[in-house]
Amino acid sequence: MISLGLRTLFAKEIRRFMRVPGQTLLSPLVTTTLYFLVFGYSLGGRLREVEGVPYARFIVPGLVTLGVITNAYLNAASSLFVMKIQGTIIDVLVSPLSYGEILAGFVGAAVVRGLIVGGVMWFVAGVFGGFHLAHPLLAIALVLLAAISFSALGLLTAIWAATFEQVNFFPTFFITPLTFLGGVFYSVQMLPGPLRSLTLANPIFYMVDGVRYGMLGRSDAPPWTGAALLVGLSLASLSAAYGVLRAGYKLRG
């Protein structure tokens, strides 16, 4: 049974981002719509198809993945970090919430925000390029795992970070570049040798590729590679976040 404490933390975190929808939900929606318009239609007019898939549809899984992981990460990271700065983290730390409940509350709410943004992005893309889900359960499962992984990573960053700059370091220098270079806008088959090898060494490529298989039914690598990677990353990031909360690292002196 889910405790009242966990339900309270989860609901409070949801209310927090729902109170600033322009910043937390609308802003990523506008950015993604611009991606679809600029890349999907202007570039799509030239490329037309990638591996037999219309280009405007080809980029949807990558952009949805980018939206989900960025928002899941940012929600957990900014919420906990702001609580640290405001001092309201004390309210949680002095409460009898267990370490698992604190983890579940923050990660759960961040996953919800990631999924809302991802879902709306998928819907907008569908309006432009048609709705298509080849393997719906797999697509949803992979997106969910990506959201869980990056929420937990966001929580870890917020616990460690001492400045806003450190909170933004990970999405700016890792998530966005690795996602853009992870086959969001192109198939790895289109790349020359060295760049292809580089892409194949990028873990986010396998996430995007797995989600693409779930949504479009095609992938460059075996789709289970992305699934296995996401299961591994989820377990590792959740375990690390739980361990850090339990140890009290940075939060309890």
Partner: peptide
Amino acid sequence: FFTVEETLRIQAGYFG
């Protein structure tokens, strides 16, 4: 983000 009443209700909720 929260009013006085919400703040008190949330804090009580954390304590079950």
